[in-house]
């Protein structure tokens, strides 16, 4: 369970810049960092294991 304010904070960071022509896909570590910055650090939120550093949404 995640509080709605955290999800709003996450959504703002995750989807920032999507309408910019210069937006580029993040790496998995970059996405992981966004999750960590809003406090989602439990292994449930671990993107890295299967992505092996590939770019993610």
């Amino acid at each position: 369970m995640v509080g709605v304010p955290t999800v709003w904070e996450l959504a703002r960071a995750w989807y920032a810049g999507r309408l910019s022509p210069s937006w580029s896909r993040r790496t998995a570590p970059e996405s992981q960092n966004i999750l960590a910055k809003v406090g989602l650090t439990h292994e449930f939120w671990n993107l890295i294991a299967l992505d092996h550093g590939q770019r993610t949404g």
């Binding site: 369970m1 709605v4 304010p5 292994e43 449930f44 992505d51």
Partner: peptide
């Protein structure tokens, strides 16, 4: 955000 409470249930692990 208003209201500033509530919970969202995530079911699928990120990986």
């Amino acid at each position: 955000l208003e209201p500033g409470d509530g919970l969202i249930h995530f079911v699928v692990p990120a990986h």
